[in-house]
Amino acid sequence: MILLKKLSKIRNHNGKSAIGLLVPATLILAGAAFVLIGIERGEVGIVLRKAINICLECIGIG
C-alpha cells in the first residue's frame, strides 16, 4: 500500500500520475483471470447455493 501511495505521487513530464492506466488495467485483467479460475474451480456453485436459500445468519436467526 505504501508503495502504491508513493507510486501515485510520482509524476511524468506531463504532470500526470505515473500509475496512469497501466496499473489499474493490469489489475482488471488479473481480476478477470481470477474470476474465470474461480468459475472453473466451482466457487460459483457455492455462491449460488448460499444466495438462493434464505441466509439465516444474515437475517439474524441462525
Binding site: P24, L27, G31, A32, I37, G38, I39, V44, V47
Partner: peptide, 15 residues
C-alpha cells in the same frame, strides 16, 4: 481462498 471473489474485487476496485 476465493479466486472468484478476489477477481471480482480486483476488477471493480481497480476500475
Amino acid at each position: 481462498f476465493s479466486f472468484y471473489l478476489t477477481g471480482f474485487f480486483l476488477m471493480v476496485g481497480a476500475a
